[in-house]
Amino acid sequence: MIRMPFLIERSRLPLARRASGWFLPWIAALSVYVAVLGGIGLVALGDSVRGWDASLAQRASLQIPADASAARLNTVLALLRQTRGIAEAHLLDPAETARLVEPWLGRPIAIDRLPVPRLIDLRVDGAGAADLADLRQKLASIMPDAVLDEHGLLLDEWRNAATRTMEAIAAMLAAVFLITLWSAAATARAGLLLDRPLVELLQLLGAADADIARPFRAQALWLGLLGGAGGAFAAALTLLAVGSAGRALSLGSLLPAGGIADWRVWAILIGATLLAGFVAMVAARITVLRRLARMP
């Protein structure tokens, strides 16, 4: 059996009984709230990036001017189908094009009366399989106004933006972690100050530093978990609200792929709560031991 004395042993010394750390649960709650939302944001963003990879990495599109003749369209299609690395070239019919512009122009759309370019959806065999620069040159000689959109480039930009966002979220989580650490240390220092006469007496009676630190550690663990649970609960409510709002606005759930039931959401909720307690406990222990080490 694994022993976890720091969690199960009842403190025997009457220390850390005063409410010296009232602010720690609030800081822990806020930290966990921010950490959960940030962590779930990271997961959701990661899911999105993977979705873009899957859907766009092997795609490109070609815009043909609306007034292009059928003969020239066929020439272009023939060129595309002969190009090595292009697995499929699909000319979108007016109905498919109408669906694409529907979010901006609304319904119903008389697409035939609008100067909307014709679109050819290209599926390439894999990244770098098709020489799109060469294709662009050939297209310029056949149809100079055609525009080849390589989604891979756009995807790279999105991916970079997502990475920067993830880094910002990670930095925010680190800041939250440090604030919790500082709060727990401040709580332990305040507790030590309040109990200083008793601590000095216990030292003279032969109490080991670890025994003196244990009640402060237990207090920090309890306050951290208490605040963390409150923060996690508030974050869960926020996630439910965000999910509902996202669906109501047709933006998707704005949550990781599995929504609120996704196991990763629960892992983050529970993990952040436990982490708040653990960080508070470790910070309190280190703080108390360092202070005691300065005493005779």
């Binding site: 007496l201 009676l205 032969g206 109490a207 080991a208 530093d209 005691l292």
Partner: peptide
């Protein structure tokens, strides 16, 4: 510090101000 604590446990002290 642990050894000092061990020695202190063998001493009983009556403080002047009782503590």
């Amino acid at each position: 510090r642990a050894a000092r604590a061990g020695l202190r446990r063998r001493i009983g002290i009556v403080f002047q101000d009782f503590r």
